[in-house]
């Protein structure tokens, strides 16, 4: 299956997006007039030094933030016009998050962590994909299902986090330094899991510093001082 074909409707569109943070020391321009399209099924790496606007771009794609000016369309929705409830629903149903710190919920065990978005979506466990199937699909060993996150290694935790991101069958998976806290071997396997999800048609955006990680992507966006270079 090919990454992105010409002529398809973009799943993410940035249209002259500027994001300004007002800080006591003065305004900081995190994104400066950025325009881009992401087609369904693309695997994109976002690279750039600290402060270049990577996180801001990710927050906008993840509907956690809205632009100061310009327009961001996710699946055709202009996120600046949407209420918090609708943005939250968009995140829940169409976007999967994978964090550098894994960010599993410490009070829940492996299966419960993965089921959490399912329960958010339909109020019970029996909808969308089966939690166990997803856990197997990301390659987590059997027998760990009832362990708590603190009992797992970093690589295992990140697999659970990916399973959680996948369980509502989202269109877009956003990964913020997904291998930043892992050794290179676990990091590589995590990237392989992401690549295989891309094979199944998910759009994947990975923010990274690591060129080896970026090599998994089909396209790389280089950010510098809030602009794509």
């Amino acid at each position: 299956m090919s990454g992105g074909g010409e002529g398809r409707t973009p799943i993410i569109t940035f249209d002259h997006v500027t994001k300004v943070y007002s800080l006591p020391a003065g305004d900081v321009v995190a994104l400066n007039d950025v325009s881009m399209d992401v087609l369904p099924g693309e695997f994109i790496a976002v690279m750039g030094p600290s402060g270049s606007g990577k996180s801001t771009m990710l927050n906008l794609i993840g509907c956690l933030d809205v632009p100061t000016s310009g327009k961001v369309f996710i699946k055709g929705h202009d996120i600046r016009t949407m209420a918090d409830t609708d943005l939250t629903r968009l995140r829940r149903d169409h976007i999967g998050f994978v964090f550098q710190q894994f960010n599993l919920l410490p009070l829940l065990n492996v299966v419960e962590n993965v089921e959490f978005p399912l329960i958010l979506k339909c109020g019970r466990k029996e909808c969308g994909l089966k939690a166990y199937e997803v856990i197997r699909a990301v390659g987590l060993e059997e027998g760990l299902d009832t362990h708590t996150p603190s009992e797992l290694s970093g690589g295992q935790q990140q697999r659970v986090a990916i399973a959680r991101a996948l369980v509502n069958d989202p269109d877009i998976i956003i990964c913020d330094e997904p291998t930043g806290n892992l050794d290179s071997k676990s990091g590589a396997t995590i990237m392989e899991v992401l690549a295989s999800m891309n094979q199944r048609g998910k759009t994947i955006i990975v923010v990274t510093h690591d060129p080896k990680i970026a090599a998994f992507a089909r396209r790389t966006l280089e950010l510098l001082d809030g602009r794509i270079v």
Binding site: D84, T88, F99, N103, P117, L120, N168
Partner: peptide, 16 residues
């Protein structure tokens, strides 16, 4: 706080 950030980002509503 961090946990709240996580569950909010993966789609938990304010009311929840």
């Amino acid at each position: 706080t961090k946990e709240i950030g996580v569950i909010r980002s993966i789609g938990t509503q304010k009311s929840e």
